[in-house]
Design a binder for these strands. Sequence first.
DNA 1: TTACGTGCAAATAATTTGCAGTCCC
DNA 2: GGGACTGCAAATTATTTGCACGTAA
Lengths: 162, 162
Amino acid sequence: MAPARTLVIPNVKTGAERLPDRSALTGCPWHDVKAMLREVGLRPTRQRMALGWILFGKGDRHLTAEMLYEEATRAKVPVSLATIYNTLHQFTEVGLLRQVAVDGSKAYFDTNVTAHHHFFVEGDDEVLDIPDADVIVGKTPTPPEGFEITRVDVVVRLRRKT
Amino acid sequence: MAPARTLVIPNVKTGAERLPDRSALTGCPWHDVKAMLREVGLRPTRQRMALGWILFGKGDRHLTAEMLYEEATRAKVPVSLATIYNTLHQFTEVGLLRQVAVDGSKAYFDTNVTAHHHFFVEGDDEVLDIPDADVIVGKTPTPPEGFEITRVDVVVRLRRKT
DNA sequence: TTACGTGCAAATAATTTGCAGTCCC
DNA sequence: GGGACTGCAAATTATTTGCACGTAA
């Protein structure tokens, strides 16, 4: 009997609560990104448009700043690394992205901001979404006195079979 | 055969002056640091002894390299940061420590190497163990073809109640 | 003795910041 | 035009490395 999802993640968000509507992103990416930026109150500049396009133009992605920089460069979009970092953080603040801490060294940004968890492939340093129904946190632990839970992150670390 | 010898720690002037009962070393089956190091094949040098003492002398701990460095310095144990890093990694390799990736920026080392999960206090950047029975990963997800699971990490992020 | 350890300082890697110049509204 | 945005380079932070010297077995 498929019990209802046990995973309950208290999604305590400050400020703007609504998740940006990306349902229409299948259409003209350029137009969509501009609307998306307007919606969250970010000025649709050339570089933010281009980065938004790269980020949200092809499904769920997990990128580091460096990866996005290379991709932008490859796409002939001249953006500085500093702007990449700024943009990633701004997008995260307004809820367009989610930062995931899978690996100690670098920060990954996830275009899927709904509640879900991750595989992390050791060695390749690759991040994958875990299919939604696949991980269940049975019992959310009781936080210590005076604290509240902001998020529960599950990282399933993988290695290539020998 | 002499019984387990007193560990010689140079001039420890912190509050924890007394020699801890080694039988109470939670998660550490060895009876003293020297034996512990021998057992894992590491030469018991002065600095490794001192760091092992600090790490395993008082229950489960979550330390960064910087924290351990400061504590060693405070305890009048002259150790360089490079040696701290070397030692932490060597200890991790032989299974005395476990590295936890809770926060993107710095690496935490946990003296509790048994299977368990963590609270992470945002802002304070503090790491706490979650009581053993408190989190249950109900269903381990199926890894993608060709991969096997090495570990499942659960991080429950906390914030101070306002 | 001699290989393993250690300290120091310089080298990397990831990210942030200061500030002058640029561009959207 | 003015304030938001961007780029560059220099600054920070966390960690690693190269190499001469020290020390446990």
